[in-house]
Simulated assay, not measured.
Amino acid sequence: MKAIWNDTVIAESSNTKIVENNHYFPREDIKEEYFEPSNSHTRCPWKGKASYFSVKVNGNTNEDAAWYYPEASHAAKPIENYVAFWNGVKVTE
C-alpha cells in the first residue's frame, strides 16, 4: 500500500493493518522527512488517545493529516504506533 499526498509517496508498506476501513502503516514504513509532530490529540472510546502528524511536501502543509496511537488500549495493541491517514491523503495499492 502507498500513502500519497501532493503527488508524493509519503508511506509505503506491504504490512498495513486495516481497522475501521483505514490502513495503518508501520511507523518504520513512513517517510519521516515528510512528517512533523502536531500538538493535536483526540480520543477513541476503544483505541485510546490519538496523536497527530502534519504532512509537509514541497512547501505545502496538510495539518493533522496522519494519526497514531502511541499507547493504544489493550483492544488496539496491534496498531500501536502504526500511522493512518485522512484529509486528502490517498491510500492506494
Results as ranks from 00 to 15, higher is better:
Met1Trp: 01
Met1Asp: 10
Lys2Ile: 07
Ala3Lys: 02
Ala3Asn: 11
Trp5Phe: 13
Trp5Thr: 05
Asn6Tyr: 02
Asp7Cys: 01
Val9Glu: 01
Val9Arg: 09
Ile10Asp: 02
Glu12Pro: 04
Glu12Lys: 15
Glu12Thr: 06
Ser13Cys: 09
Asn15Ser: 11
Asn15Tyr: 09
Thr16Gly: 09
Lys17Leu: 15
Lys17Glu: 15
Val19Pro: 04
Asn21Arg: 13
His23Gln: 08
Tyr24Asn: 05
Tyr24Gln: 03
Phe25Ser: 04
Pro26Thr: 13
Pro26Tyr: 03
Pro26Phe: 10
Glu28Leu: 04
Lys31Glu: 06
Lys31His: 06
Glu33Trp: 03
Glu36Ser: 15
Ser38Tyr: 06
Ser40Trp: 04
His41Gly: 01
His41Pro: 00
Arg43Phe: 02
Arg43Met: 05
Arg43Trp: 02
Arg43Tyr: 09
Cys44Tyr: 07
Cys44Gly: 08
Pro45Asp: 08
Pro45Val: 04
Phe53His: 13
Lys56Gly: 02
Asn58His: 11
Asn60Ile: 03
Asn60Gln: 11
Asn62Ala: 07
Glu63Val: 11
Glu63Pro: 00
Tyr68His: 14
Ala76Leu: 08
Lys77Val: 12
Pro78Leu: 12
Pro78Ala: 09
Ile79Pro: 06
Ile79Cys: 08
Ile79Trp: 03
Glu80Gln: 15
Val83Met: 03
Ala84Met: 13
Phe85Leu: 13
Asn87Thr: 14
Gly88Gln: 12
Val91Lys: 13
Thr92Cys: 12
